[in-house]
Design a protein around this nucleic acid. Structure first.
Lengths: 129, 129, 129, 129
DNA sequence: GTGGTCTAGACCACG
DNA sequence: GTGGTCTAGACCACT
């Protein structure tokens, strides 16, 4: 399932997990009607509490990305199909991100600074149009 | 001074501010012996509590990036000179980051997903080499 | 049979079904000795699990509204005759409820708020007299 | 503050509380920028757990009805002004609801049946247009 | 065994 | 002292 969570990060666990699943869905690694791991299974796997996983699943259901079925399980929603990137796009993004990361590493920037830079630039781009 | 903080972000204010100042120092926008705004000034400017700013200044002093002089003010440490990127490097990083952001925007990725991707890839790169 | 269940509702399925059948009985749509659909039939129709339907039938038998005859089927109890509203009364209640709902709709109240209001007022009325 | 919760109800506590606050806001009993009771205060008052209150506040913030300020408190959002019923409308709705409740009482309908009837009729009205 | 609600209580970020 | 996150664990609704 390839999900990883850092307990050290300043970013709350439930946000990390949320974004991670969103990404998996958007890049097509998770497809409509795919079964998600059960709440408890994923909790064990990530070594976090089941409530935290449940909260993320609930949030993602609210946003239309997952479908929770009591007594059955959790599935990727169908509405998600339109949002998926094509493999090409994702590979390019990943490639560029990797290059950027290597540059930062070499330049002595820490990951936090890069994230902060991205947050700032993202806002600039958004504000401009 | 060009510092911005988002109260909506899941990232704690003090982390955002910390990383932002680090970045300004590393990219050379803040140079050794430059005077930082006073705790209160910055607090007012960012509309956050002075304690939060003070905490960040303290943390950055502990890490050797700032120099607090009681009764006088706060200054960028001199030891910092070595860590500064040359303008060339920073401009390149910024440029690549902007391109990446535009790609993500076009592909429909949210800023959180990009940050998460970067966190994941950063970890991969670090673990490999 | 005209029974509908909402899987989205916060109200448990078994409560919804219970109340729905009670209402059908009280308003005279179901009369003494009428045959209820079999557990399985109703389960299929409502797209819920047969156990859930069975539980409701059992509860309603306990309350004297249904009569379960093993190997034959489920029937509306005869004792129920006394409780039936006359058609006049039911039509009036339905009419008033419809008017109320339209008002709420126009006023921008959501169904949950109306239900909550009714729960609150019902309690007030009960407590007073 | 006039909020009441029933621990017996089949409706989850957090839904009851959510709807109750929504109603107070819509009918104008809570106005923009009014301070809500603190999470812990309301929890004590209602004799429920603070997490449950916090969840409701969070949900209502997401829906734009409340504004949560860490370290300060919780306030009614300003965007809410447009949604408020005028007193006239609310009084009428309340009046009609009371009349309906009395009719049901007299006719021997239980509160659950009335709620179910309303849910059903509401859906009919919504589906028709 | 699946998701859902609720509790009690610890610890953190912020003012 | 305020809201926010996380845990551990109980009990419920549903399949």
């Amino acid at each position: 399932m390839n999900i990883e969570i850092s307990k050290q990060s300043a970013t709350p666990l439930y946000v990390q997990l949320n974004e991670q699943i969103r990404l998996l869905i958007h890049r097509g690694a998770l497809k409509p009607d795919d079964a998600m791991p059960t709440v408890r299974t994923l909790a064990v796997q990530l070594k976090i509490n089941a409530n935290t996983v449940a909260r993320v699943y609930r949030d993602l259901q609210r946003d239309g990305l997952l479908r929770l079925q009591r007594g059955i399980g959790t599935f990727v929603a169908q509405s998600v199909a339109e949002q998926a990137l094509n493999q090409e796009d994702y590979r390019m993004i990943r490639h560029k991100a990797l290059a950027l990361i290597k540059d930062c590493n070499q330049a002595g920037l820490r990951v936090g600074e890069l994230k902060q830079l991205i947050a700032t630039l993202w806002k600039e781009v958004a504000d401009e149009g």
